[in-house]
Design a protein around this nucleic acid. Structure first.
Length: 176
DNA sequence: GGAACGATCTGC
DNA sequence: CAGATCGTTCCC
């Protein structure tokens, strides 16, 4: 199993996002299959990078293939992977994953919630994989385990934001 | 210095 | 549907 090369991430977020579906995310002793993402570009009013480079979003403007982790709502972390070229300000938000390995530790981090609720949302995914600010800027560990992306990914409006929420930049693996 | 709000989740 | 809870941003 091979880790995705930097070249994979060095493309527009709207191209990388659907390509990340069904890839294997690895961190802190567990692994999961990415099933939902959102693309954020610098020309997107909802993107953290829209208003320019700041201390928080600095990683977004750096090289591709890194984790951009931020803290929100006073209690949740969200994890992204940077895309595009150095200076662009692009990233893909990791919204949901299916547990593959280390399910026990994920359950413990998620307070023994049912397996289907372990990482089915950005805040839950971050908690299950133990993503925190300490991961910000680190190389993302995402692998191709041979599972191809869905031929017909669901594309629709984004969730939990107000500005430009209707932009069709949320990608999902179709339910089986 | 201060106010407003947020790429969310949970429980009622 | 409202509350939790606090860092970031923007305005005065």
């Amino acid at each position: 199993m091979k880790r995705l090369p930097i070249a994979f991430f060095a493309r527009d977020a709207t191209v990388v996002a659907p390509a990340l579906l069904n890839k294997r995310l690895v961190a802190e002793g567990c692994a999961g299959r990415i099933v939902e993402v959102e693309a954020y570009t610098a020309d997107d009013p909802a993107s953290h990078s829209f208003r320019g480079r700041t201390a928080r979003n600095d990683v977004m403007f750096g090289p591709p293939g890194r984790l951009y982790v931020y803290f929100t709502y006073g209690m949740h972390h969200c994890a992204n992977v940077t895309t595009g070229c150095d200076g662009d300000g692009q990233a893909v938000l990791l919204r949901a994953a299916l547990p593959l390995e280390g399910v026990e530790v994920m359950r413990a981090r998620r307070h023994d919630r049912p397996d289907r609720l372990l990482a089915n949302g950005p805040g839950k995914l971050a908690e299950a994989f133990a993503f925190g600010l300490g991961h910000n800027g680190r190389l993302a560990e995402i692998y191709d385990d041979g599972t191809p992306p869905p031929a017909d990914p669901l594309v629709g409006p984004r969730i939990g934001i107000t500005r430009a929420a209707d932009w069709p930049r949320r990608y999902r693996v179709p339910p089986t």
